[in-house]
Design a protein around this nucleic acid. Structure first.
Length: 953
RNA sequence: AGGCACGUAGCUCAGUGGGAGAGCACUACCUUGACACGGUAGGGGUCGUCAGUUCAAUCCUGACCGUGCCUACCA
């Protein structure tokens, strides 16, 4: 009837709908909240992707779940904001631009200078920085782009400044000389979290002898890093180790550099059972040795430059400000003994080369003692995988313990809930053992630290762009560059060269994006945000830090719920990685791709590339597979399955639109003319709405998606549409109108339920429904609410009986090889009068769906000789099919059914014979089992009768 | 080393102290006026192993095996 229907193609093509609707939504402003609305607020801030990033499966998952929540809440009428944005990704972005610069202009950032280089980065950002935002649109994300933020925006930078200054005022930020993780390739310090420890690497544990200075023997030490012996300033043994007790207090002589090194006793560093029980100590290049240095006031001897090459000359550090505090005289004396000529052999060598040469040198002196393979894990830079070098330097730190306390308390008190709950313990453990956070980075791209040095009072080293001051300097931390030095009155002030860790600004995201430190309407309306949804892998990096900063600066935690989703892996459970060749680009799945673009792992299965599955199918897959706490093993087959689902809905809609006799009526006006089948589907709809709502409330995405899926496919399509066909094709205008109206209503409601998961296809179909919509788009239409008046469990049970009967009849047909198109006759033997009445009421539906020419329903039966018989629990189905039934097969089936029922009855009877079961189990359980056993008894009798009545062939 | 998960149909995964489920794959039949990205029917699992608690265990407890992750350390 409806004209648009003629153009509905029989197969759904996602390409059209997906390119059509997003711009419509965006232009109409549906993504932006109406701040004046009286509704309750709902807000999610996106975990900001790197500005250099491009969409990967992790983003697709994150944003799918967030969009599901956002669209659902928006349809519920809440004042909804999902706020987009990116972070500036200090190291990554700087590296990208540096690489480009080197490639195109053969220049380094130093060639350009700081200001010009930063200009280039901003240019790069302007050109490429919106890639991921465009990709999120493809996914259908209903983000309010008018409020898009970037961590380096002026306003967000102001927030960073404010936080830094206030934390410093509160004594929670300090500058100090410490041993930190240094990446020799990125040339910056890293926080502990940015160092990845790779397990299971086999290295070498190499032993060599230190000759005692008095010539009385040697002491053998074991090491995995022989090259660091160039910076040894002690040899440690355990104080209780009888082997070495006499050596403590003596010295060894450095075999290559000639200086004397004290032998000390240290119970913490040394495990007498490991190796030789003697440890070489390099306090400036090992965290444990550094701690040892503190305990014994050891000299610090820095041997590596920023590239982790051996320095031109040894660098002595007293480490006074690092809490080590060696005596200057001791240190000078040690340095004076160093054979600089010998040092020069190693100067300029890379760590690994130096290691080889040190080993050779010691071998040459006959001091090598042992080499054994050794399992160990090495810390690598998260960004570039370069092995980090512990390095002594002056850095800025956040004193985290005081910030962690309220953040910990917020979770313990339940003010913030972590889901899945299993992560709560991990959070506690980390918060309770938290280390200070190194926040300074030796980069140019980022928020420059608001600390100012007086070039006259604090002696700086380095060039204008990279002026560095030692740990004795006294910088002023201020919101604006001070005019004058308070010490000398001079105006020669210069800002700290370092920038802040990107995570420092990300930690402010839930309030900086809303306008803090200004008291904006957004901030008042939406803080705390409704839920923090993100991957568990950034629980510490980001979530914990937001908790700390939110508690500190907003006085309450930034969100009441933290939902941590699992990791997307490939179908075999392996992490997706480019080197493994198993990454799947979400856009390839959405738009399809050719063979060349498919990752190697999928070449065999998809030799022609991927077809276009559509964003809806991908989103639905990710949501349906998001069961709490489990990794998502993404398989392309599964996505194909949900594309088929999209096609199924499309065709259900196609059917509805093609068969409409005229404009449908509101269901509320039809109550009297409703057919039982109508009330049945309305009851199922009510149940589904309840289920979906409860699942979403509990962040059970998988359950919600599955419930919608099952309703649409298994209830609406498989049963209701089939039940309704005769009425729609019939002549009764009232019945026809009622059927059509319920059909449209159900489809409309189903589309709304599905919309958060599959935004595009639902909009496409919804727009075609011939009913007056109160809203212009499904995305702002009301989400279905449960309608208890439609709940009818008795009717649902009645239809289950009808369905079982129809399936029984179809089974007979299939087992007897009767053509589906052939009309047959059937008899139902129904002992229970009530069941009889029910089935009689649905005789028409049974005849129609089971393709019967004739149906009789009776309480008893004559002999069913020559008939196919199916024994169900509440009835027997008898189909006269003389000549069509293979009686041997039929006998085998009956015997199998008898066996199965008998086994079950025996099990039940055994149970019921057990006195303690009858005595202790709840009465209803016992009663249920009794009834079941009796039912089985009847069933077995009938099955045996049927078996007897089979002709003997 | 410590901690946390997980092990259910061929595959990917739900689920529950009282009769084992879904999707895909598989088998047979069907191009029936919404849909072959489909329909109908069907086969397939001692719920990782072994103990324990319980009237009752796939579910709770413990041990073990296997897998993965997190944290810390590793001369």
């Amino acid at each position: 009837m409806t004209t648009s229907v003629e153009t509905l193609p029989p197969a759904y093509d996602p390409t059209h709908a997906e390119s059509t609707w997003y711009p419509v939504w965006e232009r109409a402003g549906y993504f932006a909240p109406n701040l004046d609305a009286a509704a309750a607020p709902y807000c999610i801030v996106i975990p900001p992707p790197n500005v250099t990033g491009s969409l990967h499966m992790g983003h697709a998952l994150t944003t799918t779940l967030e969009d599901v929540l956002t669209r659902w809440r928006r349809m519920q009428g809440k004042k909804t904001l999902w706020l987009p944005g990116t972070d500036h990704a200090g190291i990554a972005t700087q590296m990208v631009v540096e690489r480009e610069l080197a490639k195109t202009e053969k220049k380094s950032r130093h060639d350009l200078g700081r200001a010009q280089f930063l200009e280039r980065v901003w240019q790069w950002k302007a050109t490429y920085g919106d890639r991921i935002s465009r990709q999120l649109r493809v996914l259908g994300c209903s983000l309010d782009w008018s409020r898009e933020r970037f961590t380096m925006d002026a306003k967000l930078s102001a927030a960073v400044l404010e936080v830094f200054v206030r934390l410093h005022e509160d004594g929670l930020i300090y500058r100090a000389e410490r041993l930190v993780n240094w990446c020799p390739r990125c040339h910056t310090a890293l926080s502990d979290l940015e160092v990845d420890h790779q397990e299971g690497k086999t290295g070498e544990l190499w032993s060599f002898a230190y000759p005692l200075a008095d010539g009385s023997g040697e002491i053998v030490v074991a090491t995995t890093r022989p090259e660091t012996m160039l910076g040894d300033t002690a040899v440690a043994v355990h104080p209780d180790d009888p082997r070495y007790r006499a050596h403590v207090g003596k010295h060894v002589k450095h075999p290559l550099l000639g200086y004397r090194i004290p032998i000390i006793a240290d119970p913490v560093l040394v495990d007498p059972k490991f190796g030789t029980g003697a440890v070489k100590v390099t306090p400036a290049h090992d965290f444990n040795d550094f701690e040892t240095g503190k305990r014994h006031a050891l000299v610090l001897f820095n041997i590596f430059d920023v590239d982790a090459r051996i320095t031109p000359t040894p660098e002595l550090h007293l480490g006074v400000n690092a809490g080590v505090g060696a005596k200057a005289a001791t240190a000078e004396a040690m340095r004076a003994e160093i054979d600089l000529e010998a040092w020069r052999r190693f100067a300029g060598l890379d760590r690994m080369v130096a290691r080889k040469q040190v080993k050779e040198a010691l071998q040459g002196l006959g001091l090598e003692r042992k080499s054994e393979p050794h399992e160990m894990s090495i810390g690598g830079c998260q960004r570039c995988e370069t092995v980090v070098e512990p390095s002594l330097s002056v850095q800025w730190f956040v004193r985290t313990a005081p910030l962690a306390r309220p953040a910990l308390e917020a979770v313990k008190s339940g003010a913030t809930r972590i889901l899945p709950e299993t992560w709560t313990k991990t959070y506690y453990h980390w918060m309770e053992n938290i280390q200070d956070w190194c926040i300074s980075r030796q980069l140019w791209w980022g928020h420059r630290i608001p600390a100012y040095y007086c070039r006259d009072c604090d002696k700086g080293v380095g060039n204008e762009d990279n002026l560095r001051f030692d740990s004795g300097a006294k910088p002023l931390v201020a919101r604006h560059k001070p005019e004058r030095c308070p010490r000398c009155g001079g105006a020669n002030l210069v800002q700290d060269a370092d920038v802040l860790d990107t995570w420092f600004s990300s930690a402010l995201w839930p309030f900086s994006t809303l306008g803090w430190p200004e008291e904006t309407r957004e901030l008042q309306t939406f803080y705390p945000v409704s839920v923090m949804e993100t991957g568990f892998d950034i629980l510490f990096f980001w979530v914990a830090r937001m908790m700390m900063m939110g508690c500190k600066f907003m006085g309450r935690p930034p969100f009441p719920v933290i939902y941590l989703h699992a990791m997307v892996r490939d179908k075999f459970g392996d992490k997706m990685s480019k080197t493994r060749g198993n990454v799947i680009d979400p856009l390839h799945l959405i738009h399809g791709c050719n063979a060349a673009e498919v990752s190697p792992q999928f070449k065999d299965e998809y030799p022609d590339g991927f077809p276009a599955f559509g964003a809806d199918a991908l989103r639905f897959t990710l949501a349906a597979m998001s069961a709490s706490g489990r990794d998502i093993k993404l398989s392309v087959e599964r996505i194909a399955g949900y594309r088929a689902f999209a096609n199924k809905i499309w065709n259900a809609a196609r059917f509805v639109l093609m068969r409409l006799p005229g404009p449908p009526k509101p269901v509320a006006e039809l109550e009297s003319s409703l057919h039982p089948a109508d009330r049945f589907i309305l009851s199922r709809l009510h149940g589904t709405v309840t289920e979906v709502d409860a699942a979403l409330e509990a962040y059970r995405f998988s359950d919600a998606a599955t419930a919608v899926y099952a309703f649409i496919w298994n209830e609406l399509c498989d049963w209701y549409i089939e039940l309704v066909k005769p009425r729609l094709a019939g002549d009764d205008p009232t019945a026809k109108a009622a059927a059509a109206s319920v059909l449209v209503h159900t489809l409309d409601q189903a589309l709304r339920l599905l919309h958060p998961f599959m935004p595009f296809i639902t909009e496409e179909i919804w727009q075609k429904l011939p009913i007056p919509h109160a809203q212009a788009s499904i995305m702002i239409a009301l989400f279905p609410t449960a309608n208890p008046a439609h709940a009818d469990p008795a009717l649902e049970a009645e239809y289950r009986l009808v369905q079982d009967t129809i399936v029984g009849l179809r089974t007979i047909r299939a087992e007897s090889n009767v053509s589906p198109s052939k009309q047959i006759s059937a008899r139902l033997v129904v002992p229970d009068p009530e069941d009889q009445r029910r089935l009689t009421g649905h005789a028409g539906e049974i005849k129609s769906l089971a393709r019967l020419a004739d149906l009789t329903i009776a309480g008893t039966t004559d002999k069913a000789e020559g008939c196919a018989v199916k024994v169900l629990e509440r009835l027997q189905i008898v189909v006269p099919l003389l000549g069509l039934v293979d009686f041997q097969e039929e006998a085998a089936r009956l015997r199998k059914a008898i066996d199965k029922a008998t086994t079950e009855r025996e099990r039940l009877e055994k149970k019921l014979a057990n006195e303690s079961f009858v005595a202790r189990a709840p009465a209803d359980v016992v009663e249920k089992d009794r009834a079941r056993a009796a039912e089985l008894g009847v069933m077995i009798d009938k099955l045996q009768t049927s078996l007897r009545e089979l002709p003997q062939s």
